[in-house]
Each structure stands twice: as C-alpha cells, then as structure tokens.
Computed example of a mutant assay.
Amino acid sequence: MTDANAPNLDHPDDFYARLLEAHEGLSKPESDALNARLILLMANCIGDGAVLEHLLDAARARGPAPGGTQTGASAGRGST
C-alpha cells in the first residue's frame, strides 16, 4: 500500500484553495457537514475497504488534533 502522506495531487494548492472556498460563509456546523459529505463521497470513490482503513489509521496517527485532543494509538484504536 502506498504512503498516504506522499504527494499525489497534480495541483495540491489549487485543490486546497477550492476546499477553502467551498467553506466560505458557512457556520461551523455547516462546515462540519460539508466535510462529512466530502469524506463520504471520497470514500465511495476510493471504494476499497483496506485502503480506507489505512487512511483512517494514517489520519489518526498524525498527532494531536486542534484543541489538544490526542489522536493515534494513545487515544484508542491502535494502528496496524
């Protein structure tokens, strides 16, 4: 399985700018709902359960989340 953190987008800055633009003017709950819908759409496009599990583990292993909430193995589910 490839490294989930390795660059893979042709134009990552363009995507990031578009992602920020999509959130403009939204409240925190609306922004959270947009993120949830986007995650589910992307998961559906990926379609491979093993890849999705790998990505979840990689996302949790990134360290403390904003606000100091610990993520990763020490916060519950360990990585495989």
Rank of each mutant, 00 (worst) to 15 (best):
M1T: 01
T2V: 13
D3L: 07
A4V: 07
P7F: 12
L9G: 00
L9N: 00
P12M: 07
P12D: 06
D13A: 15
D13F: 12
A17G: 03
A17N: 09
L19M: 14
L19T: 13
E21M: 07
A22V: 10
A22C: 12
A22H: 07
H23F: 13
L26S: 02
S27H: 02
K28S: 08
P29E: 08
E30K: 08
L34Y: 03
L34N: 04
N35M: 09
A36W: 08
R37G: 01
L38W: 03
L38D: 07
L38P: 01
L38R: 11
I39Y: 00
A43K: 05
A43S: 12
N44E: 15
I46P: 02
V51D: 10
V51A: 15
E53T: 08
E53S: 05
H54L: 11
L55E: 02
L56G: 03
D57A: 15
A58F: 06
A61V: 04
R62T: 05
R62G: 08
G63D: 03
P66S: 03
P66T: 01
G67V: 10
G68V: 08
Q70D: 10
T71H: 05
G72E: 01
G72A: 01
S74Q: 12
A75Y: 04
G76Y: 00
G76Q: 12
R77K: 13
G78A: 08
G78R: 04
S79G: 10
T80I: 12
T80L: 13
T80V: 15
